[in-house]
Design a protein around this nucleic acid. Structure first.
Length: 110
DNA sequence: GACATGACATAAC
DNA sequence: CGTTATGCCATGT
């Protein structure tokens, strides 16, 4: 599979994250059928046009916001998350509470 | 083509 | 809470 297809699958998974939940980069990579390629997820979110995508529901495996402190994008992410009922404190969210619980641990594909 | 970098993860200490 | 090491790979220099 090429980079475009990978990006497409990643975007597909991100678009399926339910409001009020968050998913980690590695989790998204796994669900996209790309285990171990968490960095690719980050790269896609940085390059691809994220308009229309719930990119703000993507955080690190520790539930922390991956964007640099003080950046406007980070502020926007926190704002959007809290607007969905996700509690953000000190740039972190409680994964036990808001982590995206998928039924199957295996890739989520059509 | 070698090298550094990054919206990362996991493990070990 | 922290740091270090290792795996990962597309991009930019």
């Amino acid at each position: 599979m090429d980079a475009d297809e990978s990006a497409a699958r990643i975007c597909d998974i991100v678009s399926r994250i339910p409001a009020g939940s968050v998913a980690s980069y590695g989790q998204i990579a796994r669900l996209a059928g790309l285990p171990g390629r968490a960095r690719l997820v980050g790269r896609v979110l940085r390059t691809t046009d994220t308009a229309g995508l719930p990119w703000h529901r993507v955080v690190t495996a520790q539930g922390r916001i991956a964007l640099p402190e003080g950046s406007d994008a980070r502020q926007l992410q926190c704002q959007r998350l809290q607007a969905e009922g996700v509690t953000v404190r000190h740039g972190r969210v409680d994964l036990e509470r808001h982590g995206w619980q998928t039924q199957s641990a295996a890739p989520l594909l059509d």
